[in-house]
Amino acid sequence: MITGSCLCGNIQYELRGDPINTAMCFCNNCRKSTGSVGMANSWYSKESLSITKGADLLRTYEDHAVDSGATVERSFCPGCGSPLIAENKIKFPGAVIVTYGTMELEEGQKWKPNLEYFCKRKAEWLGTPAETEKFHEL
């Protein structure tokens, strides 16, 4: 099990089971939603995620992603602004995307991406594992 929370702790969650995959996304929308070089995330089945605190606080922005052409529902904490989960119901039905930065990994739990999306937008100075499967777009 993995637990996680937003920065202020008002929204907390638990993840059970293994992720479907782990990924880095460098599309413009993921970069802008995180304010960083990209978004590190894990995809889980929706049944794996349980919001244990603050579910009623969670706010969702409907992002009409320009790069992928998909609509991504990005959920965040309105208090601290932390992006927590996202859903792309058309391309990945039944899955929830959980941001790596909100996970509280225990000692011995490791996270490493196995996929990279929108590598055409990846910062040239950013190193990632050589063995990840890389896609120019999605």
Rank of each mutant, 00 (worst) to 15 (best):
Tyr100Val: 04
Gly108Cys: 11
Cys77Asp: 14
Asp63Ala: 14
Thr3Phe: 03
Phe26Trp: 05
Ser5Gly: 08
Arg59Cys: 08
Asn29Arg: 00
Asn88Arg: 14
Thr3Arg: 14
Ile51Asp: 03
Pro113Gly: 03
Gly4Tyr: 10
Asn21Lys: 11
Ser50Gln: 15
Pro129Arg: 15
Ser82Asn: 10
Gly108Met: 10
Ala40Glu: 02
Val96Asn: 09
Glu107Met: 03
Trp111Cys: 11
Glu73Leu: 14
Ser75Gly: 01
Lys120Thr: 01
Val96Tyr: 04
Glu116Arg: 08
Ile51Trp: 07
Glu124Lys: 14
Gly94Thr: 09
Cys30Pro: 02
Phe92Asn: 13
Met1Asp: 13
Asn41Pro: 00
Cys80Lys: 14
Thr3Trp: 00
Arg31Thr: 01
Gly94Ile: 04
Leu15Asp: 03
Ala55Cys: 05
Phe76Ile: 09
Lys112Ile: 04
Met103Tyr: 07
Thr102Met: 02
Asn10His: 11
Ile2Ser: 05
Ile90Val: 15
His64Ile: 08
Glu87Asp: 13
Thr34Asp: 03
Asn10Leu: 03
Cys77Ile: 12
Arg74Tyr: 00
Gln12Ser: 13
Pro19Gly: 11
Ile20His: 13
Ala65Ile: 00
Glu131Ile: 03
Cys119Glu: 10
Ile85Glu: 08
Gly38Ser: 01
Ser33Tyr: 06
Lys46Tyr: 03
Gly101Arg: 15
Phe92Arg: 11
Ile97Met: 12
Thr60His: 09
Asn29Lys: 03
Arg74Thr: 07
Leu84Lys: 13
Cys8Tyr: 08
Glu131Val: 07
Lys120Ser: 06
Gly101Met: 03
Trp111Gly: 09
Asn28Pro: 00
Phe92Lys: 09
Lys122Met: 05
Ser36Asn: 13
Phe76Gln: 13
Ser50Arg: 15
Gly17Asn: 09
Asp63Arg: 11
Gly35Gln: 05
Glu47Pro: 00
Thr128Ser: 10
Lys32Val: 01
Asn29Tyr: 03
Met24Leu: 15
Ile90Ser: 13
Ala40Ser: 07
Cys77Asn: 13
Gln109Val: 14
Thr99Val: 01
Glu14Phe: 00
Ala55Thr: 09
Leu84Trp: 10
Asp18Lys: 15
Gly54His: 10
Asp67His: 04
Leu58Thr: 06
Phe118Asn: 08
Ala70Pro: 00
Leu15Tyr: 07
Lys110Asn: 05
Gly9Trp: 11
Trp43Met: 09
Glu14Tyr: 03
Asn21Met: 12
Trp43Ser: 12
Glu73Ile: 02
Cys80Trp: 13
Asn29Met: 06
Asn10Tyr: 03
Cys30Val: 06
Gly94Tyr: 02
